[in-house]
Structures are given as structure tokens and as C-alpha cells.
Design a protein around this nucleic acid. Sequence first.
RNA 1: GCGCGGGUGGUGAAAUGGUAGACACACUAGCCUUAGGAGCUAGCGCCGCAAGGUAUAAGGGUUCAAGUCCCUUCUCGCGCACCA
Length: 1044
Amino acid sequence: MTSSAIQKNSKYNHRETEAKWVKQWESNQTYKTPELKTGDKKKYILEAFPYPSGDGLHVGHALPSTAGDITSRYYRLKGYKTLHPMGFDAFGLPTENFAIKKGIPPQQTTLESIKNFKVQLKKLGVDYDWTRQINTTDPNYYKWTQWLFQLLYKRGLAYKKEALVNWDPIDKTVLANEQVTKDGTAERSGAIVEQKLMSQWFFKITDYAERLLTDLDGLDWPESTKQMQRNWIGKSDGAEVEFQLGYEGDTIRVFTTAHDTIYGVTFLVISPEHTLVAQLTTEDNKTAMVDYIAKAKQKSQLERTDLNKDKSGVFTGSYAIHPLTGGQIPIWVADYVLTSYGTGAVMAVPGEDERDYEFANKYDLPVIYTNHTNSFVSYSKEIKTNKDKYTLINSGEFDGLTYTVAREKILDKLIEHNQGKAVTNYRLRDWSIGRQRYWGCPIPVYYKPSNQSKVLVIMVHGGDSTGSSEDGRQDDKITDRIVEKNQYSTSKGCPVWGENLDKVLDKEIFDVVAPVFPNAENALYSEWKRFFEQIIESQLKNNQYQDIVVIGHSLGTVFLQMYLSSEDFNERFGQKLSIIQLVGCCESEGDFEVTDNWAKIKSQVGLIKIHHSQDDSVCPFKWGQLYASKLGLASFDTYSNKGHFEQVNFEELANQLRSNFVGAKTVESLIPEQDLPLVLPNDANMTSGKIKPLGENLDFVNSANKLYGDGAQYEGDTMDSFVCSSWYFFRYLDPSNVAKFASSETIKQWMAVDQYVIGAEHSTLHLLYARFFTKVLFDEGLIDFVEPFVQMRHQGLILGPDGQKMSKSKGNTINPLEVFEQYGADTLRMYEMFMGPFDQPKPWNTDSIKGVRRLIERIWAMQDRCYYSSAVDSARLSQLGIIHGPKSERTIEKELQKLTKKIGEDIESYSFNTCISEFMKFVNKVEEVGGLTNYQFLRFLILLHPFAPFVTEEIYSQFELPNKKPSISMEQWPEFEAQMLVDTTIKYMVQVNGKVRGEFEIETNMPEAAVIAVAKESVSKWLEDKEIKFCKVVTGKLVSLVVS
RNA sequence: GCGCGGGUGGUGAAAUGGUAGACACACUAGCCUUAGGAGCUAGCGCCGCAAGGUAUAAGGGUUCAAGUCCCUUCUCGCGCACCA
């Protein structure tokens, strides 16, 4: 540029400049993604899309965005066509909770937050192509989330089942295993997660366990993340061994990775939830067992895994037969065995397993050592470190064999005897995706009643008021209190209730039975029991029921409590009681001691619901609370202004029955594709400060009947937002396609993602799910690759100035808007890159950022040091080895060449921090020698442009240049000339006895002898009177001498 | 307990096995300025006046040469955790 173009000594005004370019880039569509033609080189650069929180941009967001921007701009300058999109992952609980708190619909909050985020991201100067923006809450987007759900369903990878799930009592929803922290709390809400039996949608990610594991090997990802996924998938190779029981029929199957220790098995341990527990427990051990299991159930997941110091268990009294020795093996129940892994049963080898050893010691069980030391050895450690020395003893015909051989032979023998097989086990569980909340993607499924399956509803009424407690039948009485206290008859009211309920329930689905139990005025347990069982038997004779629901009132609930805690309903009728509606609860506080076997009750019923009026004068409300807590219920339905006999709201009850049972005895169907998307209803009830979970919005749920016939109901759960966010990178390719999730051509052109930057917290969630979806799409033949992210890196956390994680409550947050205002976006970007290694956590330093701002100022001032060289191409000539011009120009040229090489390499290896240092060094050098040519300055600006787009664009715009482009981003990356980096002389250093003692400079390509001669001279002081014993020349670097 | 990363000045940090502390921040001294939360110059691991010595969590090893490779220990962070 000519000197006239320079505004000397003008200070860089970042506010004006940045605002100007934000506008211009937008109106000029500078960063619109170009069309890809065959032969074009492409880069798909991706950063995780943010959750648009109301707080707006965080300095942490700038880190991945800037890194992506640097790479994207770098490759664009290098002639690549780049796709660099951004969008919003907007479904989720924070918005819903905020909506409830503030009474603003989530739709509105979301749009406002997105708008705000976009403005702020634009201020950062990132080259996102905003025409491709996506928003997961937009029906045009989630239509394809639903389509994906249906694809999985059709491939047998989406299913609904009754399962113990993680229940978050604060956010009132189910969570995926991946969303529960190690200490058993919810990742988001921090609540202690409960285990709840519920009917839930799952994705069968376990089908892909092996592929998810093996395909990790080829990925350019941080090793730690790959390892984390490997651990999460948790593959172990071993064997399933069958142990016969003392009687015909059942066997106990155990999973083991150490089947070569099988001769050391001295007992079996099964989990308290094992299906054979009841059967195996002998009469003598029953009390202890029932007690133990009840205690185990009461323990939360947390307690059960945390209390690993003291193992406990109970002997069942039964024995299994050792498959090879035929010996008797006692069977124990202990809660250190997990139901969810393997078969829920283990063969205990106390001689080689620490847990079994501890257990054997505690309960005085025999120990057999099968390893060569004939003493306790931890098998798992031993085979890792000492595998080859490990040989067997006490193992019959296998004595003396080494680990490897024994493993093989013992397995062969088990297989031969039909008592075992090789099995691979994975720790990975299926992905639970249903969420009982409103602000999520609706699951595109509806249910319709099926005629075959009905529900039996039995009402068990309370007691009547007459009779005496002293009539000789006392022992068998349901409670002592009933006859004294009751003043009302419910045996007469009950049939009326039954009629009322029958009126409002669909007769094709529900059979309501409301009998009058015998002697209600002085009820006897044995009598009621006989009567109750007879009713069920006679109903089952003529009908098949999907579910049996018992509604107990008052004394009726006490009866049920006694019945279910002592009788085996499930076994007797081959059916579980799926719900029990306890209206009015119990008769007295003392009833809670009628039985304390709450565990058994819980094990026999599915869903438990309690209704209790706060104004029940017969049974105080606190009894209801006590009941709920005994049964482990988080909540129950409460009323007020209702007496003991008035608290049945038939409509309410009927709705509850319908919504809880409609799924179990109905047929599920996918919503036809042409009806997608199934749109989330607008919640009209915001003024009340409430948002109904989708499933409780009966207007919505029942609206399915308009399209799919009478009785049709939509699924009331929404999807985990990770479903929405784990396929989004496909939608950027073709965001407005109405016919497909993305067209095959664009997928072919742009996928896979070449560079992905995302936080390490997604290692086992999003990154695993996205890989899973990609493989499913591959299997469906829609794409031709199996891994979505070729290269992935994590950004490190930016900590507060105090070294702590930034948080509002700690008051250590940095507001990026203030930084924009004070220092400008270029400074923020470069500072964040300069802070330290990209993937490491690093504290914000309010002082350090000044150094970066100074750099920008000095670069701005470089315009004054830039002189117009008459030979514009003198640099070019220099590259060819014909060096003209002043010495300073040659010095700078060489530095610039080095810089060009270094910046390119460092961008490609994510070493952004050293890039900034290199820029600083270069600027120092320019100031030292006094200036640089305009052509050198131009190339420098191009190198700097990915890091500081605003200031470089501004200076460029003032350049006088032939063939000037509308934007510096359209310039070409300078190529360095390797020959320019070769010096004519080389500096050597000289070491004597390993210590640096001197240095010298010498022409390149000198013979070694000459180099040594000069080297000796340069350190003559250290060689006096000494004999040189060793001499080594490292060409171009150093001479190492060893003297006596 | 297992797995994966780290540990270098007052601070953030550099360093294909080859002059440890580049580059910056802070600090100190000086200059300039009406003033400065501006700019410029110089210094800045530790010991020492200096020559020099000595330093990359600790100890050992390999090597002409180790922050870097190997072994042991300590320590911090992350992940998994009674996974049979």
C-alpha cells in the first residue's frame, strides 16, 4: 500500500470496525457455503451446537467456535470448500423449568434465546453459514427425529418394556444410565436417582456394542475418549456355565471370565432379585431371607454399591451340583451380585477372587486354591502381570496346565458335557429414551385398545361398624380396631362405587367386580382371603386378563397389605397385580405393624397409587404419608374437603386406569409417515404457571382418535433430547429438505465430518449415540460410511480467574459481551487461543488478555512500518534464491517463511497457543528491523486472518492491490518455500562430557573432520591436557566430545 | 481398586532425545509524560561479586546427550467401579 493510504498513529477502533464487518459479511453473504463440484476438496468443520440458555453466550462457547473458525478459514484460504454450520439444541428441561417459573411458554423463550445467541456468535466473527441454521424444536427438524425413531422401530431397535429405570424425583422424569453420575445423583438436577419400575421406550444400542467397540480403533480421537467408550461398552469374554440343582427343571447359569478356576468353586451366589430365590430358599432360611431381601431392596443403588467394605448374604439352604466334580455347592444370596450384569449369578472362587474370599471368610465357607501358589492370589491381577507362570493345581485332570491351555481345555470339556459355552458379555445397557416431560420431541406412536386383552378391576371395601372384639374370632381378625371405631358401612357402598366406575370405563377393556365381602362387620382374614381368591379364580376361568387391578378402601387396604405380604399371588395366579389403588388407606397407625414385609408387597405389584384426602377424619392424612413411604412412593394423590367415604373421584380414577393400563393392553402403531411430524401441542395453560407433561395432556393424547379411530391415543412420553442432538450433523447438509432427512448427494459430498470439536463431557453420551445412529443409517443403506466424525478433539474448560469452575454463585464468571466491548472480538479470540493448550482446562487471567490486545495494536501500527517496495515481487525473487533488497527485508522474508510453515502445521495440530506466540515473535522482529514490504505484510495478514478476522479484513480493505478480492478470506494461503528455510551457514553447539561448552557457526555441507576441528577449537579451554575418548557429530546440530 | 491424562519460574506456558524456561502476564529499575490502568529501555528460576555451579514432583536406569525413553514411588485431575 502507499503511505498515503495509512492513517498514521490512528488507534485501532475495534468497536466500529467489528460492527462494520459483521454487517458487511452478512449482507455480502461472504461465508455462504459454496456448491461442491466433483474434484473439489472439502472440509466439514463442526462444533457441538449449544443449548440456547437464557444467559446467552459464555466465554467457554467462544473456544470451540474460534477453533472451528480458525480451521474453517484456514482451509478456505488453502482452496478447500468448507461447510461450517451452527444451530441450536433447544429441547430440554432448563427451558421447561424456566417456563414454569416465569410463566413464559418454552416456545417463546427458546426463540428469544436463539436470537440472542446468534447476535453474540456473530459478534465473535465466526464464519458460520447461518442459512443452514437448525433448531431441534422446529417441527421441520423434529419430523426427522421422529422419522429416525420410526426407522429404528422398523429395524427392531426401538421397543417398549417394563423395566427398572432411573427416576429423577426433582425433574420428575426417567434418565438414561449415561445421565446418572457415579454417586447415584442426576447429572442435571442433582437429585438422588431412584429405581422405578415403569413401562419405557428403549433404543437397542446393545445390538451395536461390538461394532461400536471395534470401529473406535480407526478414529482420530483423543485416546482417553476412545478408552472411555471402550470401558463404557465393557466387553468381557468368558463362559456361561450351567449348574444343575438338586431337582429337575431349573438350573443356575453363571457368567464367568475365569472358567479355568472352576475347580475352586465352593459356593454360588445369586442376586436378591434372582428369579429362583424364593424357590431355592428352604423353610429354615425363609425368615432370614425375606428379611435380607427387604433390606437389600430398601438400599438405594448408591448404598448398595457404596457399602463395599462389608459383604453380606444369606444361605438359601439349597445346593447346586458342580458340573465337573459333581460336588455339592451351597447357594447363597448376596447383594454384591448385580442383577443387571451377566446372569445375575456368579460362581464363587474364594481362592482367586477377592470378593469371594472376603465372603467365604465371613461366613466360614471352604476355600480351594487352584493356582500354583496354593494360597490366595488375585486372579485378575495375576493374569495381567504373570500370565505365563500361572498354572493349575487341585483341578483334577487339568493340574499343571498353564492358564492359556487350561482355559481352552476346561471350556471344551464344559461344552462337551453340555454344561457351558463361550459367551461374550457387555456392560453397555439399552438406551432409555422416554421422558415424562413436555418440552421434548413427541414419540411418533399411537396406541389402540385390543379386544383380546382386558383388565380386571376388583374393589375391596372396608369394614362395617357393628360387632364385638370379644367374640372368639379375634385371632383371625384383620385388625383389632375396626370393630370399635367404624361407624359407617362400606360393604354396602362398595357395590355402588363399582357401578359408578363401571359406567365411566370402557367395557371392552375393563371388567369391574365389586363384591360384598363376608362378615364385613367383623372381618376375618382367612375368610376374606378365601373369598378374594375365589373371585379371582372364577374371573380367570372365563377371561384372560392383561392386568389385574385391585382397589382397596380402608380396611380393604389392610387386608391387601396382609395378603400380599404373606401370600404368593404371582405364583398362584401366574400374574402380577399391576396396580393397587389404596383409597383411604388403613385403619390405624398400628396396622403398619401388621406386617413389615413391605418388600414382598412391592415385589408382587407393579404400579402402586395412593389416594388420600387431607380431611379424612377416620384415617388421618399422615397415615397415607406413612403408607406411601413404606411403599417407597415419591408422591400420591391428595384431596381436601373430602371425608373418608367421599374420596372416590370416579372420573379421576378411570383416567388413571386408562392412562396407566392403556399401554399395557393396547397395540402400538407407528404414525404413518405422511402424518409426521407429530406436533407438540402448544401448552395453553401457561398463566397458571404449569405445564402438563405431554402424557397428562389428555386433549393431546386422545386427539389421536381423530386420525386413527376410536380409542386411539398418542404416546405421552417425549424423547430424551440426546436423540434430537445425535443426528443433527446430517441435517446441516440439507436443512430445508422436506422429502428426506438429507439428500443422498449432499451426504455423499460433505460427510463425514472432518473435524469435530466438542466437550469431553459428551464422551459416553452424544458421541456414542451419534455413532450408533450412523451405523443404523448405514445398515439401512442410506449412507456409505460407518463413522460420523473422522477427527474429534475436546476443548478444555475455561476456569474463572480463581481457578475454579465458572459459576454465577461463585461470582467468578467472565461476560464475553464486556470483553467484546473493552478489547474486541479479535482479542477475545486470540486470547482464548493463547491461554494454553487447546484441550487443557485453563484459568482466565484478566491481566494476560492485555498482552494480546497490545499485539493487535502493534499489528495495526505495522501499517506505518510497511513500505512500498519498488520490486513488489522482491520477496518472490528471494524465494528463488536471488536475494535482493536490503538485509532487513531478507531477514523478515526468512522469518515470514518460517512463520508460514509453523502456522500451517500448528493449525492442523490444534496448537493454537503457539501460533499466537509465533505471531508475537514475528511482530517483535519487524519492530526490531524497522519494517517490512507491503507484499510481506499482505502475506502476514493472510496468516493472521483465521485468528483475527476483523482487524485483518479492515487492513486488507485499505490495501491498494491489483486483483484485490472483496474479502481477505478469499485470498490464497501463502505457500512457504522450503529452500528459503535452508541456511548457508549452520550454528553448531559443542558439548563436552554432556555439557554445552561452546558454539560456532560453519558453512553447510562441510566435511565432518572440518566440523570437528572447529568444534575442538571453540572449546579448547575445556580440552586442555585431556584425551578425547569419544566424538560424535550430529549433522547440523552439535558436536559431542567426551574427555577423560 | 482399575483405566486415561498431567506435575517445568511469582503466573499462563514453550521445547522432532540435542543450548530448559521461547512467547506473554506479573514484578523491579530507568526514560518519556501535566497525568496514566498509555508508551519505550533494561532486568527477571535458584546459589554466586564473578568464573561457574545447580535446576523440569522424588528416586533409579538407558544414552555421548533425558523435561522428553524405561522402572519404582509420591501427587493432582478425569473416567469407571462389588462388571464376576
